[in-house]
Design a protein around this nucleic acid. Structure first.
Ligand code: FES
Ligand code: FES
Lengths: 146, 146
DNA sequence: ATAATAAAAGACCTTTTTGTCTTTTAATAG
DNA sequence: CTATTAAAAGACAAAAAGGTCTTTTATTAT
């Protein structure tokens, strides 16, 4: 569904939030290992997210990644749009250049419903809400064991 | 949502079915033009579909592509799985290697619902049903005009 | 048989995605 | 101030997706 970059970004940020809850600022090596993502690729992705202001970082001893609690929560939708664009939320499932309900493709009626549900999901969920679910122990973060 | 190959495959097959309804067997050049897809790439994709037995072809004068009406209808799901695999229908939205409802990721509950809806859509719809919708004039096939 | 037609096969290329690694910059501890 | 730590930056590369083109094979009409 989502591309690798998006997946690593979501998992990485959720892990950062989880550690922040404990008062810690994880570094790249730790994050990459815990979310089972390529070390340097994760670094590159996180750097982009820092530049975009989605998460903060600190260099040097004791440094690492953390969320600015003064900033509003980061919805999955914002994150996904930043990493892979909004075609998932606006694009035509049949591949027409524009989805236009007044000129629908033969998939439109049923597809638009699913697209809207996806839209709702990623609009409602955010990095913090996912981290909380994981923290409560109901949900799993790491794919390492599967 | 779907990759280009899948999109071209769906649009191409729907166009073929549409022409078959009129007793015609379209050729690659015509198909590619009508569905606004790259000529030679379309050829390659259709050739693969013929080899897989999803559609038939005839070489030489008067040749072209057509469906064997004795074969069962081709669901979108079969087609999608053939072109890009089944990760859309089984994969974890969070990127875990395995989606396991007994060990769910923090997205699982809501995501699995959407995935099931998508599954239902592509299981119910097939090339013939999409062609019929287009034929009834309610839905649009070509993206050329958008 | 021959010419014309149209798909099949497969080589080749470009772009995007994914991933790796080295060097530079910034922060902190001592 | 110096050494250490850790992120930032950016070059580089592998793999996958997307796309192009030429040659071969099969069919049909004449
Ligand atoms: S026109 Fe195709 S999904 Fe809306
Ligand atoms: S475990 Fe992630 S979607 Fe099921």
């Amino acid at each position: 569904m989502f591309n690798k970059e998006t997946e690593y970004a979501i998992r990485g940020l959720v892990y950062i939030q989880l550690q922040n809850f404990e008062g810690k600022r994880p570094g790249i090596a730790e994050i990459a290992k815990q979310i089972d993502a390529p070390h340097f690729y994760t670094a590159k992705i996180l750097q982009r997210l820092v530049r975009q202001g989605f998460v903060e970082s600190l260099k040097g001893k004791g440094g690492g990644f953390y969320f600015d609690t003064k900033k509003p929560q980061l919805s999955l939708k914002q994150l996904i749009i930043a990493t892979e664009g909004d075609s998932l939320f606006c694009g035509c499932g049949f591949g027409l250049k524009q989805c236009d309900e007044n000129n629908p493709c033969p998939l439109h009626d049923k597809y638009a419903e699913i697209r809207n549900a996806l839209n709702k999901l990623v609009s409602e969920e955010n990095v913090q809400s996912l981290a909380q679910k994981t923290q409560r122990g109901e949900e799993m973060l790491s794919p390492r064991l599967r």
